[in-house]
Every structure is written in C-alpha cells, then in structure tokens.
Simulated scan of single mutants.
Amino acid sequence: MLEIRPNCENCGKSLPYDSEEAMICTFECTFCITCVTKVLHNVCPNCGGGFEKRPVRPARFLEKYPPSNKTLLQPIDREKFIELQEKYKEIPPNKR
C-alpha cells in the first residue's frame, strides 16, 4: 500500500492524494513533476532510479487507507547529486 506522501521532498510543494503532479520512484520517494523534469532530470537522488506518475487513491478508500500526513523535506545537495545525475540521466530507467 502506497503511503501517498503529502509533499515534494525537494521543494516542499503540497502533493495531496489526488495530485496530478506527484511523481514517485520505486521506493516511493516523492517529488513534484517540476522538480523531476527540471532539477532531477528523472534521476532519483536517493536511489538513482527513474520516476513514474503516482496513482491517485480513490476517495472512497481515504477513510480506510488515509494518505500519510508526515512531511519529508530534504532538498537535494547539488554537489553530491551531480555525479549520480550525470551517471544515469542518459540511461533509460529500466536499464539503470
């Protein structure tokens, strides 16, 4: 079951359960589509994987399976990330 994390880990943008802008990696690191495309270039700063659109949790399941309300904000350290980004940004996520 996905946590449905409430914000972008990099910029802090709110990403509610029904957001069309939420992107996640295989470990559910959560970023907004702007950070994924313009800052991260589809490279997760935590695992090096790619991102996919996060599914929307149907409203009828929110009471039984509420989304997480725990925010996680850890803006990327550009100097540390650049090596990982350069290594993977030209390789399709399914080949990394």
Rank of each mutant, 00 (worst) to 15 (best):
K53S: 12
E21I: 04
E86Q: 14
E79K: 15
P66F: 02
L73H: 12
I33P: 00
K95E: 15
F31Y: 14
V36G: 00
N42Y: 05
K87L: 12
E21P: 02
D18P: 01
G49T: 05
G50K: 12
L72G: 02
L40P: 07
R60Y: 08
M1D: 08
C35H: 04
L2E: 14
E20K: 14
E20F: 13
V56T: 12
D77P: 07
R54Y: 04
P16A: 08
A22M: 08
M1E: 10
K38S: 13
G50T: 06
C11K: 02
T26P: 04
I33S: 13
M23W: 01
K64M: 01
P6S: 05
R78E: 06
M23Q: 10
P66G: 03
R5H: 11
K70Q: 11
R96C: 01
D77I: 12
E28A: 12
E86M: 07
E21M: 03
L84C: 07
L84H: 09
I82G: 00
C35I: 03
P93S: 03
K87I: 03
C32T: 07
E63S: 15
E9V: 13
S68M: 03
V36Q: 11
I91S: 10
I91N: 11
K38F: 05
G49E: 13
V36W: 03
Q85C: 11
Y65L: 14
E3R: 15
R5C: 02
L2D: 12
R96H: 01
C25K: 03
F27L: 14
Y88W: 15
R57T: 05
T37N: 13
Q85E: 13
R5W: 05
H41L: 09
C35E: 01
K53P: 02
E28T: 09
K95I: 02
K89F: 06
L84T: 11
N42P: 00
E21D: 14
L40F: 04
D77G: 10
V36I: 10
V39N: 00
P66E: 01
P58S: 05
N42E: 01
I24E: 09
N69Y: 12
I33T: 13
N42D: 14
E3V: 15
Q85R: 15
P75C: 07
Y88R: 14
Q74D: 12
E86D: 13
V36M: 01
D18T: 04
V36C: 09
C25R: 08
P66M: 04
E83H: 08
K53M: 07
N10V: 02
Q74P: 01
K95H: 06
M1F: 08
L73I: 14
P67N: 12
G50Y: 06
N94C: 09
P55Y: 09
E86C: 11
K13A: 03
T34S: 08
T34I: 12
L62R: 15
E28Y: 08
